[in-house]
Design a binder for these strands. Structure first.
Length: 610
RNA sequence: CGGGACGUGGCUCAGCCUGGUAGAGCACUCGCUUGGGGUGCGAGGGGUCGGCAGUUCAAAUCUGCCCGUCCCGACCA
């Protein structure tokens, strides 16, 4: 049993001006956290208790499928050099030197370290599969920390790594994580969705994110209310309605038309009296390519970094999805072209760029201009495009006939109300319309493949005595993000409420008048009984007015409150459920059993049967 | 990194434009009061005005540089 009078719970009547999102304001006001620097926070007793409960759930569930490790947070350069990520992680990695001048970094993830160990220790297929996890502090020098604990530079992550002999094994390890993650987030009371995700620069084959819908989130999720399809916007596709094609004019060949001042899509559509869907939009980028030195050819040295021109073409009413684009061309970074680069690659100015007359490279990011055409332009006819000449456009442009490309790929973001891309078992298309919502990512699982086991030199002998490279998966959960997401999904003007499973305390006993000895003693006795019953109880024994205690109790996230007040004389107390703000009078000798029952029903305290 | 805003007791802010004794509310301490939704009254303590330099007889206020924080865009648990 804990006493409020002795605990350090510095609640704030007002939130600091810096706090913008609900979870940030309430974490500060409720005395869970205090800021130390940009994206760096002290965790106070209430916050730490809640995080500990989350960690306990994660640990309990992860132990069902894996084994806990604890790797260092401070790491030597070599493994990162070996994987190539010392160079590619760039500014996001905190780096430091020791007294001897040796390079070190703070761990932002641990693929390299786990895999090095696997490579050193694993010898035989008989030792596989292995699932190794840890709960560790991670450091990332985020360019823009924000929104309290949502995006920070130091955070706690559960990260796990699976090693399997083959793809079938990896599928199983992946599915085990999928199942355990669902149990974890369910026990933490999160309303989450699992979505298809971009597997990113790490080069995975399959990837799924666990997302909690909230406006504070930074990701956009497209989902279908009919069939349940859900995908990160970086991955989502849709079925587009057919477009009514324009009639060709003249001889049907591309025709140069003077379009003075029509630089924007809307101007062009207006000028030609066409829908923007019939105009070809161009967005021109420079893409960064990481080259690995060809050691076999005797060319050691630092990895190379080169920038290459990339022209993207898509419907005038569509937007480029830069993540998809990067994935399509295999680049590491993008920036938009400068005016000089535009004239170099297109020989034309912004606003009048078009695909006709370009010489696409045969492979992405070679010397020259990589031309990427969005799939939605495939099979289209008689379109309008920039002529690469100031104040001129072309009409009657037919993709494939009038211009070629390096790549035809899905590089656009889907929009709301576009049709769901799924098909039913009988092959009929899903009738749903996509909805796009903001969400925060609390977990991510993905199939890594051989990238790290290969580069870190992990090998085992297979059943035939042949040396093979284990296949890996990598899986993360953001501990603080679980707390943040839980607060985002359950708050009101007065504060927030957590499920008993992750709340710092399950129940607070509020003695409405501490100067009344009878009430104080009744509160003490009740709190002791709740404690004996195995509930995490906080006794508010402070010499404060009832109103102050009620306000504080409503603020700090505890799911149940028992008011010990006047009615005690009649053998009654009030049980208040924070989530619903409802109160019931209960006999003093029945309230412990009732709270226990409520917690068992709604508190998510028990483990879910495997 | 690009764009915007801000920095004054623990918190929220005023004062700055137009230079001249550093303020309010909340919080804190003490006394009384009150005792079911942040009681009321009284008395107190607490501030290098983010830092450095400059202008000036005089700088929280004007100028320059730096530091820090937040918000909007490109990255991720």
């Amino acid at each position: 049993m804990h006493r409020w009078s002795r605990l350090f719970i510095p609640t704030l009547r007002e939130a600091p001006a810096d706090a913008e999102v609900a979870s940030h304001k309430f974490l500060l006001r409720a005395g869970y956290i205090r800021q130390l620097g940009a994206g760096i926070y002290n965790y106070l007793p209430l916050g730490q208790r809640s995080l500990n409960k989350i960690i306990a759930i994660v640990r309990e569930e992860m132990d069902l499928i894996g084994q806990e490790f604890f790797l260092p947070a401070i790491l030597p350069r070599e493994p990162w050099e070996q994987s190539g990520r010392w160079a590619t992680m760039g500014e996001n990695m905190f780096r430091l030197k020791d007294r001897k001048g040796a390079d070190l970094c703070l761990g932002m993830t641990h693929e390299e370290i786990m895999t090095t160990m696997a490579g050193n220790e694993l010898r035989s297929y008989k030792q596989l599969p292995q699932i190794w996890y840890q709960i560790q502090t991670k450091f990332r020098d985020e360019p823009r920390p924000k929104a309290g604990l949502l995006r920070v530079r130091q955070f706690t992550m559960k990260d796990s790594y699976s090693f399997d002999i083959d793809m079938t094994g990896l599928d199983k390890s992946y599915d085990l994580h999928d199942a355990v993650y669902r149990r974890i987030f369910t026990r933490c009371g999160l309303k989450f969705v699992a979505v298809e995700a971009d597997s990113g620069a790490m080069g995975g084959s399959q990837s799924q994110e666990f997302m909690v819908y909230t406006n504070a989130g930074e990701d956009l999720i497209a989902s279908c209310p009919v069939c349940g399809y859900a995908a990160n916007l970086e991955k989502a596709t849709s079925r587009l309605d057919p477009v009514n094609e324009m009639e060709a004019t003249g001889d049907g060949k591309p025709e140069l038309v003077s379009t003075p001042g029509c630089a924007a899509i809307s101007d062009v559509a207006e000028f030609f009296k066409i829908s923007p869907a019939s105009d070809i939009k161009c967005v021109a980028y420079m893409a960064l390519k990481h080259g690995t030195p060809d050691k076999a050819a005797g060319k050691p040295g630092a990895p190379t970094e080169t920038w290459h021109g990339v022209a993207t073409f898509l419907r005038g009413d569509h937007q480029v999805n830069e993540t998809k684009l990067l994935g399509a061309v295999g680049g590491a970074d993008l920036r938009t072209m400068q005016a000089e680069e535009l004239s170099q690659f297109f020989n034309g100015p912004a606003g009048f760029l078009g695909p006709v007359g370009l010489s696409p490279t045969s492979k992405p990011l070679d010397e020259g201009l990589t031309v990427v055409v969005d799939k939605s332009l495939e099979g289209r006819k008689n379109l309008v495009a920039g002529a690469n000449k100031l104040d001129y456009h072309l009409r009657n442009v037919v993709p494939g006939r009038d211009f070629k490309w390096t790549l035809l790929a899905d590089i656009r973001s889907v929009n709301e109300v576009e049709a769901c891309p799924q098909t039913a078992h009988d092959g009929s298309p899903c009738t749903g319309k996509l909805v796009v919502g903001k969400a925060v990512e609390v977990g991510h699982i993905f199939k890594l493949g051989y990238r790290y086991s290969e580069s870190m030199g992990a090998r085992v002998l297979d059943v035939n005595g042949k040396e093979v490279t284990p296949i890996m998966g990598s899986y993360g959960i953001g501990i603080e993000r679980i707390l943040t997401a839980a607060i985002e999904q359950s708050n009101d003007q007065n504060g927030f409420w957590l499920p008993a499973s992750i709340a710092p305390f399950t129940v607070v006993v509020t003695v409405t008048n501490a100067s009344d000895v009878a009430l104080r003693e009744a509160g003490e006795k009740l709190a002791a009984e709740l404690d004996t019953a195995g509930l995490d109880v906080l006794l508010d024994d402070r010499d404060e007015r009832a109103g102050v205690k009620f306000k504080d109790a409503d603020l700090v996230g505890i799911p149940y409150r028992i008011n010990v007040g006047k009615k005690v004389a009649a053998g009654q107390v009030e049980l208040v459920t924070r989530a619903t703000a409802t109160s019931v009078d209960v006999a003093l000798d029945e309230v412990v059993a009732l709270v226990k029952q409520r917690v068992e029903e709604d508190g998510l305290l028990g483990a879910i049967p495997a």
